[in-house]
Design a protein around this nucleic acid. Structure first.
Length: 476
DNA sequence: CCTGGAGTTGTCCTA
DNA sequence: TTAGGACAACTCCAG
């Protein structure tokens, strides 16, 4: 038997049930088909394509070391391309790892039926989640919509299966033709990716390395330090997880091996709960597939969002006049990533201070994040906007000054990404418009020239947001 | 079916 | 200075 291993968001060789199934019987033809049109409204953005380019290069190298290859194709229709590939190499089976985005679910189920109708075997497997979304149900048989009971339930189900070793791959009698990686045209035409190259190394080897470093150095302090964008206290595994360069089961068992003896309660740790949020996001996306574009709470459909292209542009470029917001937006633009605490701050600012639609923020994140993930992005934005599952209460409006002083107390994060403020003392760096004139001039800052004055007054904007939110309540 | 407790990440005012 | 309560109402979920 010859099996096509259809890679998508599972760019690794370990803990890969589909690959193990493929290798168990006969030859394996590893394939990646670039078909962004099939993702509908959510084709990968620029930063994701950059990561994908390098992630595919890394996977191809891993496969070469295993005596195999990665066949690359560009197609408008994955089904037709897989059928063509099967003819070219005499394959009689196609296997893949499941995806959970609505467009992918629809495409994959149709594709499975069609492959079988064409006389090929077709099987899908779980490489991305601890549990399948349909396996997790509350006591009434419905999907969960609140995180805490969801995660309690998941943890009570016990440890997920142990990760699988990378299988031995037999080559097929004849290889189909492949494009060169450059021909997929995933890299930017103009070289804006310098910051990404400095910040990231895609690939499963780098992911494994990052996990080892994190467990060794940062896990113990994670619950506190994870909120500090000025420290390197988070795992930064999110893009690796999104592209499947490492799987959650591998993380789970690495933690178990490392921590079980000294810290038997590790399953209740904050970091493991973050894996839980990733699971919860996929659970919600699978069961509520309209949420990437529609609020889960229907009342928010009539929220009075503003239309203000100038304010949106100021937010996107990091020119709002609120240093912690601008630092975050510039970190995103430069490195393709933003610290989680700062994601909440900038999102709250867009949605509540500027009253701009959460979907605009989600769209910008989608294009600029190397870890852009439809499940996580949708949950995060709807949570901040208050219209999602387990959402923030309406009165929770982040104060960008208070958040800055609390979580970037020395201003180092702001200084790194907003260099025009670098010489301001910590006491003023999160509120330069309140600094005495002599402090500003000593720091070389001319507000309105070197750095903008605040584009909205936070106290006034907060009042406006509370009024707008109250308008959703029929009693008002 | 009913009931009651609870719900990631805040802010601001008052005593 | 600091601690505590108000800030809506609703829906989810378990018992």
């Amino acid at each position: 038997m010859t099996t096509i291993m259809w890679f998508r968001a599972d760019l690794r060789l370990t803990d890969h049930p589909a690959l193990v199934a493929a290798a168990a019987e006969g030859a394996v033809v590893p394939v990646f088909v670039w078909a962004p049109e099939e993702e509908r409204a959510f084709a990968p953005g620029g930063a994701s394509r950059w990561w994908l380019h390098h992630g595919l290069a890394a996977l191809a190298a891993d496969l070469r070391r295993a005596g195999s290859r990665l066949i690359l194709r560009r197609a408008a229709d994955s089904l037709a391309e897989l059928l063509r590939l099967a003819r070219e190499c005499g394959a009689d089976r196609v296997v893949w790892s499941r995806r959970y985005e609505p467009a992918a679910v629809a495409r994959d189920s149709l594709l499975k039926t069609s492959l079988r109708a064409a006389g090929l075997a077709a099987e899908s497997y779980n490489a991305a989640l601890l549990r399948e979304p349909w396996e997790v149900r509350n006591k009434s048989g419905a999907p969960f919509q609140v995180f805490t009971p969801f995660w309690r339930h998941c943890v009570a189900l016990g440890d997920p299966p142990a990760p699988l070793d990378a299988p031995v791959l037999d080559a097929p009698a004849r290889w189909p033709a492949s494009l060169e990686l450059e021909e997929l045209d995933l890299r930017p035409r103009i070289a804006w990716d310098e910051g990404l190259r400095e910040a990231w190394q895609p690939g499963s080897a780098a992911a494994a390395h990052r996990l080892r470093e994190f467990v060794h150095a940062a896990f113990a302090d994670y619950a506190e330090a994870r909120n500090r964008p000025d420290l390197a206290a988070t795992s930064r595994l999110s893009p690796h997880l999104h592209f499947g360069e490492i799987g959650p089961r591998e993380i789970w068992h690495a933690l178990r091996t490392r921590l079980e003896a000294g810290r038997p309660d590790w399953r209740q740790s904050q970091f493991v709960a973050e894996l839980g949020w990733r699971e919860f996001a996929h659970h919600l996306l699978f069961h509520f597939p309209s949420t990437p574009s529609e609020p889960l709470r229907a009342a928010y459909g009539r929220f009075p969002w503003r239309d203000d292209p100038a304010a949106l542009a100021a937010w996107q470029r990091g020119l709002t006049g609120y240093p912690i917001v601008d630092a975050g937006m510039r970190e995103l633009w430069r490195t393709g990533w933003m610290h989680n605490r700062v994601r909440m701050i900038v999102a709250s600012f867009l949605v509540k201070d500027l009253l701009l639609p959460w979907s605009e923020g989600a769209r910008w994140f989608w294009d600029t994040l190397v870890d852009a993930d439809l499940a996580a992005n949708t949950l995060g934005w709807q949570w901040v906007a208050g219209c999602g599952a387990d959402a923030a209460p309406y009165f929770r409006i982040f104060n960008p000054v208070g958040q800055g002083m609390k979580f970037d107390p020395n201003g180092d994060y702001v200084r790194r990404y907003v260099p025009e403020l670098a010489r301001l003392p910590s006491a003023w760096i999160h509120r330069p418009w309140e600094a005495p004139a002599e402090i500003l001039s000593a720091a070389g800052v001319d507000l309105g020239r070197h750095y903008p004055k605040p584009i909205v007054d936070h106290a006034a904007a907060r009042g406006r947001a509370l009024l707008a939110l109250a308008s959703l309540n029929p009693a008002h």
